[in-house]
Design a protein around this nucleic acid. Sequence first.
DNA 1: GTAACATAAATTGTTAACAATTTAAACAGA
DNA 2: TCTGTTTAAATTGTTAACAATTTATGTTAC
Lengths: 228, 228
Amino acid sequence: MSDTPETVLVEHVLDAISDQRLRAGTKLGEQALSDLFSCNRAHVRRALATLAAYQVVDLIPNRGAFVSTPSEDEARDVFQARRAIEATIIRNVVRRADEADIASLRAHLATEDSIRSQNDRPKAIRASRAFHMLLAKIGRNSVLEHYLAELTMRTSLIIGLYGSNAASLCSDDEHARIVQSIADRDEARAQEMVDHHLRHIEGEIAFGEEAPRVGPLSMILSPDRATG
Amino acid sequence: MSDTPETVLVEHVLDAISDQRLRAGTKLGEQALSDLFSCNRAHVRRALATLAAYQVVDLIPNRGAFVSTPSEDEARDVFQARRAIEATIIRNVVRRADEADIASLRAHLATEDSIRSQNDRPKAIRASRAFHMLLAKIGRNSVLEHYLAELTMRTSLIIGLYGSNAASLCSDDEHARIVQSIADRDEARAQEMVDHHLRHIEGEIAFGEEAPRVGPLSMILSPDRATG
DNA sequence: GTAACATAAATTGTTAACAATTTAAACAGA
DNA sequence: TCTGTTTAAATTGTTAACAATTTATGTTAC
């Protein structure tokens, strides 16, 4: 892909959101961002417009840009949309995945397993999301893949806002069962597993809780961080 | 909603695309747009970034912005995504629609009927799209509603590119049957009707055909046009 | 000590000028 | 007439300066 300042900025912010380093409500000041990414404010403003279109940033006139804070209703809509989209994705996967795809899924399960033993929460969150995005990729529908990318980021915001500490991580167990039903080419079961998995995640969210605020932008968004 | 120059510009371009006044491949020059909407180029660039994020505009570095030209593969992905999303939407509608909602659907059918007799193709296209968006609204899931808005616009581009002249309009007949099954609270039938309807539209597309080019931007995008 | 107000700082919004690149046009040579 | 080159025009990209608004600070009155 291209490598414009806008793209770099957008990708970094999206990564930070999906890793839950950037939390809902955080202000994204223009000066701060243009300093961090050593570009001018015009670039920043364009990038923020893009992020706003992705619905992970709210643009408030004369006030600036803020990481969006999903309401409870919005959160439920996001999860229902995920179920709708991932149901079709998993159907595509069962029908289209070849042996190499299934191998990559198993490899990913192993990675998740090893990460789980490290107790590195941000890393675990990233790997969990990556599993769902890997499914989307194997499903080979670029439109659904793009929407799922957006929805998983919004899910990260939601879990960061309302999620209980213990919960809010995909259990490797459920991921493994999903992969097994793909390998078995059991479409109905795979769909049911994914649906159950998503409802499980949603069920663990405790609406009403509060979210701790977070450190300065420079700690969260340093551009020299690996893009993973 | 807010009334910034960016918003106005985005809305007008989206309307023009969904009405098929703006066709795939049309160049959206910065000067032309800033003249048309009497704003400066900074506004135009921000608006174009938003439209690019909506995936209805391609931004090519140093070349400018163009209405995006969906490939055949992309078109199939768009239709599959629509089936996935509208399946859930129609389920929501059957479960959540009250009498007023059903009345508004019947009213819309009447409007479509009267428009059909006028032989005004752009008007018919707009009304057809409005039916699907009305369903999305009644379904009361703002995330799915937003995605359907994007997908129906991309559908307009696809039909404008590949659609045969005769076809490519939702038949009122199918819309009427959908409304009837909603009124009957027949979830399975409603879902089947919507799925069939979307496959019908997709089936009438003739990939391989070419699209005629189109007149100047000023004719297509005059900002004083009603937004209705 | 608190509330309301005035002032200063910081941030966002707007505009214009200039540089770099691409596109179109003019032109010369074969 | 066609091809390739050079020149000019138009378009996009970049930057900085300034205006308007919001936020923070400090002061005064009660």
